[in-house]
């Protein structure tokens, strides 16, 4: 995919990564990783390709990303002032927040009834989808490459033809009594 991600600046990518990492956190990719806060073991949304998915042509929100990044960093700046945080200005403001502050800010931005909930929830949804489904690549390829989300969730490998089949699927036992009024066709009365 000639993704629009290539057109994002380094600091835009960092900001979006930090947001995605707040939604499904992961371990740092390298010792000096700033965007990923390292708040959980194993790869998180960033390692799962969240920014590729956000920027994908299919997703349709790529064009909005630069504006969202500005908004997110403005909110981070205001948050820092309000809570007396000193931000390292060598990185975008949202990236400069620690994980707990990023979490608190993301929660506030996505709280019900707030003006901008409609902007941030879709961004969070793309982050979740990147980790839970790996939707920027074929699922079989994602699994073969050890996709962090699908493998952590224990999503099983397909058969050799890339399709899933579960011949062992049932306890094969009567496990409850049916409702006494069940009709002969098996329906509710």
């Amino acid at each position: 995919m000639p993704s629009e991600a290539t057109r994002l600046t380094v600091s835009e990518v960092m900001t979006l990564e930090a947001f995605a990492d707040t939604i499904i956190p992961g371990e740092r990719r390298y010792a000096t990783d700033r965007a990923v806060a390292g708040a959980a073991d194993g790869g998180g949304a960033v390692a799962a390709g969240a920014v590729d998915l956000m920027a994908s042509e299919e997703g349709g929100i790529g064009g909005l990303l630069p504006t969202l990044v500005i908004g997110l960093n403005d909110h981070a700046q205001a948050y820092a002032e309000k809570h007396d945080r000193t931000l390292d200005d060598s990185v975008p403001a949202f990236v400069a927040l620690d994980f707990d502050d990023r979490t608190a800010l993301a929660a506030a931005l996505m709280a019900p009834g707030t003006d901008e909930q409609d902007l941030w929830v879709p961004l969070a949804m793309f982050s979740v989808m990147a980790w839970d489904t790996g939707a920027s690549v074929h699922t079989t390829e994602a699994l073969a490459a050890g996709h962090p989300g699908l493998t952590t969730m224990g999503f099983t490998e397909p058969d050799a033809d890339g399709l899933w089949r579960f011949p062992d699927f049932s306890y094969r036992r009567v496990l409850a009594s049916p409702h006494p009024h069940t009709t002969p066709s098996g329906d509710p009365a």
Binding site: F169, S170, Y171, R172, R173, V174, L175, A176, S177, P178, H179, P180, T182, S185, G186, D187
Partner: peptide, 27 residues
């Protein structure tokens, strides 16, 4: 029938029975 009921369906049915409820395989 119960041979069609999957593990997750069976688990739910067994939990219903344990709680004194009925449970039906759905057409």
């Amino acid at each position: 029938d119960w041979n069609d009921v999957t593990y997750s369906g069976g688990l739910f049915a067994a939990a219903c029975a344990h709680a004194g409820r009925t449970a039906n395989p759905v057409p």
